[in-house]
Amino acid sequence: MIKKVDGDDIAVSWVELSPQGKDEEKWIKKNLPATCGRFKVERATNETFDTAHFSHMVQAEDGKKWEYDIYPRTGQVWALYKDWSMDWSEEDLSKCEHYVAEILEVTGSVVKVLLLTKVVDYNFVFKPEKEGGVEQVMEIPLSENLRFSHQIPAFQLTEEFDGSLRGYWELDSASVPKPYI
């Protein structure tokens, strides 16, 4: 959590997942990363970093005192673990594959996502994945929030290349899972 910005220096306090159930407790005991869920301020520090250490701002909602909820939001792009399992180890995580998906809708119990696929001849441009002309949509229960690997900063294209890429997503090159590059 960013506490203060002074020129190119940023003072932070560290946050950690505040487990909301046995699955999340099991996940953090295995020292696996979590990018969405309820987070609490772990410790206040005066550590500072330069701006090069940060990729993008994450939107959080205030929870209880010193806790913040970070979940996918409609219109964002996220990487999701393929074939995800609560039984994964650090080794499983290091060799896993990913989906790239646009968040279509978030309800009280489900996140609906549209799978994206890379556009041929463009390194970081993605479009909706279709199978038999049908867009590939998945519903992920909020109870599987650990399946979300990380948010990918992105923007939708409009008039680039005479509008031929209109509605497609250009993704941040540093955040795209490596096999897609």
Rank of each mutant, 00 (worst) to 15 (best):
L32D: 10
I140K: 09
W78V: 00
R43H: 09
E47T: 04
E47F: 14
L80S: 00
E129F: 13
V12H: 00
L115T: 05
F124S: 06
E135M: 10
D172C: 12
T35F: 05
K118N: 05
N31V: 10
P153G: 15
K95H: 14
V176L: 05
W27P: 01
T158H: 10
I28D: 04
M57E: 07
R73D: 00
V41I: 09
R43S: 10
T74F: 00
G108T: 10
K40W: 02
T117G: 12
G7Q: 03
A44K: 15
F155Q: 11
N31W: 08
R166N: 10
S143D: 11
K30D: 15
D92M: 06
K26S: 15
L93Y: 13
P128G: 14
Y71W: 03
G63S: 09
P153K: 09
D172Q: 13
E47K: 15
I70F: 00
Q156V: 03
A154R: 03
K95G: 13
Y180N: 05
C36Y: 03
K112L: 13
A34N: 07
W84G: 01
F54P: 03
A34P: 06
K95L: 08
Q151T: 11
K22G: 03
R43C: 09
E97W: 09
L142H: 12
Y71P: 00
N123P: 03
R166F: 04
E25M: 04
N31Q: 15
T48M: 06
D69Y: 02
I70W: 00
S18D: 10
P33D: 09
E131M: 08
A11D: 06
E61N: 09
V12F: 01
V119D: 04
